[in-house]
Design a binder for these strands. Structure first.
Lengths: 128, 128
DNA sequence: CTTGACCTTACAGTGACTGGAATCCCTATC
DNA sequence: GATAGGGATTCCAGTCACTGTAAGGTCAAG
């Protein structure tokens, strides 16, 4: 498979696939012309990475998850621990965004949004 | 005021304050020794920026908000429009994170988290 | 006169790509 | 055989909003 084939298969852009090779997440073979040659196992790994990224795992977490995936002797506790930590971070991020959302919603509701200069949003930013 | 004074006043790190000058958000004066000299108005602007950033506005949005703040003839509709767009983006981000959260919660709950290698988290990542 | 706290600039690094330029390869057609 | 196209390659720069570090200048106290 060439890069565009595996890009179609995995839904990842060719640029991203090249980047993943550059940082050592995958190691596709090379044809005599220098083209990357992707085995089914490479495509499989890329799909794995794509799903992990879609769940918000960092690249370094993805690297660890891949290593665990390939380690037949892993303990599921290691995987769970990683996922739990990530989940906690997501929940913190949600809480933070919800706090912004609440403030913004309130301010937007208060603002007349007409041609006059008076604005509670700017007042809030100016005075805290 | 020197940079550390205004840093204390605004809660922004000196590094960030220098950066904000570099990108033209503030224009403090300079003493003969080259030190930045912050007027009360600079400190006020920085506090404004800090609050806008805390609400998640991008630097470019902050620049626009500052310009609107300083424009006596602004229309509050312009401010409201900016805030509304930002709010929408925050809500999209929250929805995206909540979707990740739901999946991760489910997977974490399913995973035994013991010494055995069997793991629904990895299975999900591998098979989709 | 030295110490130590403060200030300055300039440059590199972060995360995870993304865009663009220059060049090479392969296949098909004229 | 020349050429046109679509795809592949590498390398470099840019994104966003800082943050870290190094090398040096300034100031007040002792």
């Amino acid at each position: 498979m060439n890069i565009s084939d595996v890009a179609r298969e995995t839904g990842l852009p060719p640029k991203t696939i090249r980047y993943y090779e550059e940082i050592g997440l995958i190691r596709p073979l090379r044809d005599t012309n220098g083209y990357r040659v992707f085995r089914q196992s490479d495509s499989h790994k890329l799909a794995f990475l794509g799903r992990a990224r879609a769940l918000g795992f960092s690249i370094e977490d993805c690297r660890k998850l891949m290593a665990l995936y390939e380690d037949q002797d892993r303990a599921s506790s290691d995987v769970k621990h990683l996922a739990q930590e990530h989940l906690t971070q997501i929940e913190e991020k949600i809480a933070q965004l919800q706090s912004m959302q609440a403030t913004l919603r309130h301010l937007v509701r208060e603002c007349a949004g007409d041609a006059r200069p008076d604005c509670p949003i700017l007042r809030d930013l100016a005075e805290g």
